[in-house]
């Protein structure tokens, strides 16, 4: 079938793009000892790969379970939820205890809290009466602001010392990816990805929307909540590594739809992931090596993403 060939071709091109971005990132401007440069850049690369893959996949999955092309977990407040979870954990147990613990353990606890909280959020947003898309979006955006404000408020209530510990954890950015978490983050992302593999065709059915999917025998609530748990883990990983990024997933997912031109998850998910990786690694390479910026990637992504989102909203109204 011609469109399947097109999708495969698109994947090939995207893979080549991602590969060249990775090569450029690892080699451009490297001086001196390769034994030092490779592991140093390799760690950074791993972080960017994890984030690119996690954000892109979580966005595609979220759009699948909400039968939608505009909603993303970040826009619906899931990233802010992670920040709030970390803050609350800190407020409850105090920095002395948290700082004494292995950061990986704290992270795992955060993820667990996050999975529970995000399911509650999802059920609240999507479980009840059907709402119009714009209302849903506005609710999500404002709720995200509320969560962020609440996190900020709780942070202000903390002891300034505790706040310092927390801010090291929370204000991670593309320039300063915490290396201690790379191991556990890789394991989580790999686990979720492996879990997704055999479910790709079921995801295609879920993307048809609830009535059709239930008709075809999908156990809607259980399946969707399971996918959502996967989304939460991915969101938590990316938020812990680089902090909240509001619009990046939206760009990656929208481009993936454009690139493969159809909705089968076996093409869509890899495409989104490759685009996410290319954008992050390529963007960071250009910023670091060409413009000598360090932490501005997040800001640029927000800027471009916000414009994309407005364009999507306007375009959608037009049709």
């Amino acid at each position: 079938m011609p469109h399947e060939r097109r999708a495969r071709l698109a994947l090939l091109v995207l893979a080549l793009l991602a590969l060249s971005a990775i090569l450029a990132f690892m080699t451009l401007g490297a001086r001196g000892n390769w034994g030092f440069v490779l592991p140093f850049r390799g760690k950074k690369l791993l972080g960017l790969l994890l984030v690119g893959h996690a954000v892109a996949c979580s966005t595609v999955l979220f759009q699948t379970v909400t039968a939608n092309r505009i909603l993303t977990p970040a826009i619906m407040g899931f990233d802010s939820l992670f920040v709030l979870c970390s803050t609350v954990l800190m407020a409850l147990f105090g920095s002395t205890m948290v700082a004494g613990l292995d950061p990986r353990l704290v992270f795992a606890g955060n993820v667990l809290l996050m999975v529970g909280a995000s399911m509650a959020l999802y059920l609240w947003l999507f479980g009840g009466e059907e709402r119009s898309l714009h209302r849903l979006l506005l609710i999500g955006v404002v709720f995200g602001i509320f969560l962020r404000m609440l996190a900020e408020f709780v942070q202000r209530m903390l002891d300034p010392n505790e706040f310092m510990v927390l801010s090291d954890m929370l204000f991670a950015s593309f320039g300063t990816i915490p290396a201690t978490l790379l191991g556990i983050a890789s394991a989580m992302v790999a686990g979720v990805t492996l879990w997704l593999m055999p479910r790709l065709s079921r995801l295609d059915v879920i993307a048809l929307g609830r009535p059709v999917a239930v008709n075809l025998g999908i156990r809607w609530r259980a399946e969707v909540l399971a996918v959502l748990a996967a989304v939460s883990v991915l969101v938590a990983v990316s938020a812990a590594l680089v902090g909240p990024v509001l619009f990046f997933g939206l760009i990656a997912a929208s481009l993936a739809h454009l690139a493969v031109g159809q909705s089968a998850h076996r093409y869509l998910l890899p495409a989104a992931s490759l685009i996410g990786v290319t954008m992050l690694v390529g963007g960071q390479t250009v910023l670091e090596r060409v413009f000598a910026f360090n932490t501005a990637l997040g800001i640029i992504v927000e800027f471009a993403g916000g414009i994309t989102f407005i364009a999507l909203l306007i375009g959608k109204g037009r049709r």
Binding site: S132, L137, F309, G317
Partner: peptide, 28 residues
């Protein structure tokens, strides 16, 4: 004016996003 369908929910939504974009520009 370019949004053909003026859903009352869309107006603040676009505004919040635009404010975010302007803020990102400022931060940059």
């Amino acid at each position: 004016r370019r949004v053909p369908l003026r859903d009352p929910m869309l107006v603040p939504l676009v505004g919040i996003l635009l404010s975010g974009v302007i803020y990102a520009g400022t931060a940059f």
